[in-house]
Simulated assay, not measured.
Amino acid sequence: MNSVLPSEAPTASLAAQPAATPSFRPLYQQIRDLILRSLQQGEWKPAEVIPSEMELAARFGVSQGTVRKAIDELAAGHLLVRRQGRGTFVATHAEQQVQYRFLRLMPDVDQADAEQPAQREIVECKRARATADVARALALKTGESIIQARRVLSFGGIPTIVEDLWLPGEPFRGLTAHRLSAYPGSLYAFFESEFGVRMVRADEKIRAVLPDVQQAALLQIPVSTPLLSVERIAFTYGNRPMELRKGLYRTDSRHYHNRLS
């Protein structure tokens, strides 16, 4: 990427915008977007170090402080990770603190197993055609090829979560139940390492529901057991939706925990 901003001032194209539709943005946000574009284009892979602030400042023709502020925003969004004395790295779902950012079901009493990996059982993984609802969520056309999967997550041998997943077919070509079962890490680390798809943010909807007969059987509970339903759309770079996930959570011994700041 050869994009260069010649000075600490709005570019000519920005300055030329009509007054009725102002589009000026602080320069550090422009630099943030240029760095984000490089991430999106794969210039720096997950877990790789990016150029230093000084190198990026020279590349974009701005001050080191402007670059630092841009990187601060990307680090706050978990896209980059600063490591003291080592540099700034592209965040990866293979890292422990990132793996569990989207899984917030915590034990009520003993916190020792709060970040222990769940035992996973892949119930099914198949190719299908997107229904209207799935297509809408994944920005596809109705009938387009998708991957549909169901899995059960257990903690301490107790089935706790049943999840249904829908993924666009093309980016996840070759995904099978065997590959899902064989990968030892988190699902998002699997998507990242095997398919080059990195989830960078997610939107969730939460409500209380009752399971259907099949869901209750998978969780080994009566159909009258209230469950927490978590519906998530996960996005990769460029706000592109890459996963629709609907999970049913048992909360008889665990709770859904989120820290706001």
Results as ranks from 00 to 15, higher is better:
Asp133Lys: 06
Arg83Asp: 14
Glu243Arg: 04
His78Gly: 08
Ile158Arg: 06
Ser181Asp: 14
Phe235Val: 02
Trp166Gln: 03
Leu210Val: 00
Thr225Glu: 14
Leu228Asp: 07
Pro10Tyr: 07
Ala94Ser: 12
Leu165Lys: 09
Leu105Asn: 14
Arg120Ala: 00
Ala70Pro: 08
Ala177Val: 04
Ile31Ala: 09
Arg173Lys: 13
Ser229Val: 05
Glu170Val: 15
Ala91Phe: 12
Leu180Asp: 01
Ser181Glu: 13
Thr176Lys: 03
Ile147Pro: 01
Pro107Arg: 00
Thr251Phe: 12
Gln96Asn: 08
Leu105Glu: 05
Lys69Phe: 12
Ala15Gln: 11
Leu138Lys: 08
Glu95Ser: 15
Thr66Ile: 07
Val230Gly: 06
Gln215Val: 13
Ile161Gln: 03
Ala75Leu: 06
Asp108Leu: 12
Ser7Cys: 11
Pro171Thr: 01
Thr176Phe: 00
Asp72Val: 14
Val90Lys: 03
Ala208Thr: 14
Phe172Cys: 07
Ala177Trp: 03
Gln99Cys: 10
Ala20Arg: 13
Val209Leu: 02
His78Phe: 10
Leu105Val: 10
Arg254Ser: 13
Val123His: 00
Thr142Asn: 02
Ala135Val: 09
Gln220Gly: 07
Arg259Cys: 09
Gln97Phe: 11
Val49Asp: 06
Arg129Pro: 00
Ala75Ser: 15
Pro46Cys: 04
Ala47Asn: 15
Arg37Gln: 15
Asp72Gly: 12
Val67Arg: 06
Glu204Leu: 10
Gln30Trp: 14
Arg259Glu: 07
Gln30Ser: 15
Glu95Val: 13
Gln111Glu: 02
Phe191Leu: 01
Arg201Met: 07
Pro226Glu: 04
Pro241Glu: 09
Gly77Pro: 04
Phe235Tyr: 15
Ile147Glu: 02
Ser13Gln: 14
Asp164Tyr: 09
Tyr28Cys: 12
Ser13Gly: 10
Ile161Phe: 01
Thr11Glu: 03
Gln215Thr: 14
Gln97Glu: 13
Arg259Asn: 07
Ile71Ala: 02
Arg120His: 00
Ser145Arg: 13
Gly87Ser: 06
Leu36Gln: 14
Gln29Leu: 13
Ser193Phe: 00
His257Trp: 09
Leu228Arg: 15
Gln220Ala: 13
Met242Tyr: 03
Gln29Ser: 11
Thr225Val: 05
Pro26Phe: 05
Met199Pro: 00
Pro51Cys: 10
Phe190Cys: 10
Ile158Pro: 00
Ser261Ala: 13
Glu163Phe: 04
Ile147Gln: 03
Ser181Gln: 15
Arg232Cys: 05
Pro184Val: 07
